[in-house]
Amino acid sequence: MRNITELIEHYLKQSLENSLEGTIEIQRSDLADKFSCVPSQINYVISTRFTLEKGYFVESKRGGGGYIRIQRVDLPSLEAVQRHIRQTVGETIDQTTAEGLIYQLVEARFVTEREAYLLKAVMSRDALALKLPVRDEIRAKLLKAMLIALLTK
Rank of each mutant, 00 (worst) to 15 (best):
residue 8 I to N: 02
residue 10 H to Q: 15
residue 10 H to R: 12
residue 11 Y to G: 05
residue 11 Y to E: 10
residue 12 L to M: 09
residue 12 L to Q: 01
residue 13 K to N: 14
residue 14 Q to S: 14
residue 16 L to N: 05
residue 17 E to I: 05
residue 17 E to N: 14
residue 17 E to W: 14
residue 18 N to C: 04
residue 18 N to V: 07
residue 18 N to G: 12
residue 20 L to T: 15
residue 20 L to E: 09
residue 21 E to K: 13
residue 21 E to V: 09
residue 22 G to H: 00
residue 22 G to C: 02
residue 23 T to Q: 12
residue 23 T to L: 14
residue 24 I to D: 02
residue 24 I to K: 02
residue 24 I to H: 04
residue 25 E to G: 09
residue 25 E to R: 09
residue 26 I to C: 00
residue 26 I to T: 04
residue 26 I to R: 00
residue 27 Q to C: 10
residue 27 Q to F: 06
residue 27 Q to D: 10
residue 28 R to Y: 03
residue 28 R to P: 05
residue 30 D to N: 14
residue 30 D to C: 10
residue 31 L to V: 07
residue 31 L to T: 05
residue 31 L to N: 01
residue 32 A to E: 04
residue 33 D to T: 14
residue 34 K to T: 12
residue 34 K to Q: 09
residue 34 K to M: 14
residue 35 F to G: 02
residue 35 F to S: 03
residue 36 S to A: 11
residue 36 S to L: 15
residue 36 S to Q: 12
residue 37 C to W: 01
residue 37 C to K: 08
residue 37 C to E: 07
residue 38 V to H: 15
residue 41 Q to P: 05
residue 42 I to Y: 02
residue 42 I to A: 04
residue 42 I to D: 03
residue 43 N to I: 09
residue 44 Y to C: 10
residue 45 V to E: 02
residue 45 V to A: 05
residue 46 I to V: 06
residue 46 I to H: 00
residue 48 T to L: 08
residue 48 T to K: 10
residue 50 F to R: 07
residue 50 F to P: 01
residue 50 F to N: 03
residue 50 F to K: 03
residue 51 T to P: 00
residue 52 L to V: 11
residue 53 E to G: 10
residue 54 K to I: 00
residue 54 K to D: 02
residue 56 Y to N: 04
residue 57 F to Q: 14
residue 57 F to H: 12
residue 58 V to C: 04
residue 59 E to C: 06
residue 60 S to C: 11
residue 61 K to N: 09
residue 61 K to H: 11
residue 61 K to G: 13
residue 61 K to E: 06
residue 62 R to V: 09
residue 62 R to G: 07
residue 62 R to P: 08
residue 62 R to L: 10
residue 65 G to F: 05
residue 65 G to Q: 05
